[in-house]
Simulated assay, not measured.
Amino acid sequence: MANVRFAPILRASVGGSKQVAAQGNTLGEVLADLFERYPTLKQQIQPDNELSRFINIYVNDQDVRYLQGLETVVGANDTVILLPAMAGGR
């Protein structure tokens, strides 16, 4: 199982956990496993079956936008990080 880490703002959707294990051979399968267990997470990560442009997703510190997106291979010892994009300032 891959380890999935959550930014603090997403932790309420996963019962306050910083990290959970998820099954799947691709990022899409890992996310599907998460969404089955934590349905409110889907609206934040993948509304309308597309990855939100406001969430950065990394597999082993590599941005999936530069890999294969939802088809990115995820191994049993890999780490997936879900990190909302930050904006603001003056």
Rank of each mutant, 00 (worst) to 15 (best):
L51T: 13
S52M: 04
V64S: 09
N3K: 07
T79R: 02
N3T: 14
T72Q: 08
N49Y: 04
L70F: 02
Q62I: 15
V14F: 03
P47D: 07
E29V: 01
V73W: 04
A85R: 10
R5V: 05
M86T: 09
N60G: 00
Q46S: 09
R5T: 08
F35K: 00
L51A: 13
Q44L: 06
T40F: 04
Q68V: 08
R37T: 12
P84T: 06
K18N: 09
V14S: 01
N56W: 05
D33F: 01
R5F: 04
L51N: 11
V64K: 07
L34F: 00
Q23M: 15
L31E: 03
S17E: 06
R65H: 10
R53S: 15
E50L: 11
M86R: 14
A2E: 11
V59H: 05
G24D: 02
R90H: 13
V4K: 00
L82R: 03
G15K: 08
N77G: 11
Q68A: 13
K18Y: 01
L31K: 00
Q23T: 13
A87T: 12
R53C: 15
R53N: 15
Q43A: 07
F54T: 14
R37F: 08
G16L: 03
E36C: 10
Q19F: 00
D78S: 06
L67S: 05
A85P: 15
D61M: 05
A21M: 15
L34S: 07
V73R: 15
Y38I: 07
D78E: 05
M86W: 10
P39N: 01
D63G: 11
T79F: 00
A22M: 08
Q68S: 14
A22K: 05
N25S: 11
N25M: 09
D48Q: 15
A12I: 08
R11N: 01
L27H: 14
V59L: 09
N25W: 06
N3Q: 08
A2L: 10
E36M: 14
D78H: 02
N56G: 14
L67Y: 06
T26I: 03
R90Q: 12
I57R: 05
L41Y: 00
N25L: 07
E29H: 00
K18I: 01
I57L: 09
D78N: 09
V30D: 00
A2T: 08
Y38N: 10
P39R: 04
S17P: 07
T40C: 12
N77S: 12
G16W: 06
Q43M: 08
Y58A: 05
Q44P: 03
L67N: 04
F6N: 04
Y66C: 07
P47T: 06
D61Y: 02
G24E: 02
D48A: 15
K42Y: 07
R90E: 07
T79S: 01
T40W: 06
L34R: 00
N25K: 09
T79V: 08
G88P: 07
V59W: 07
M1Y: 11
L41A: 02
V14C: 01
I55R: 12
M86N: 09
S17C: 06
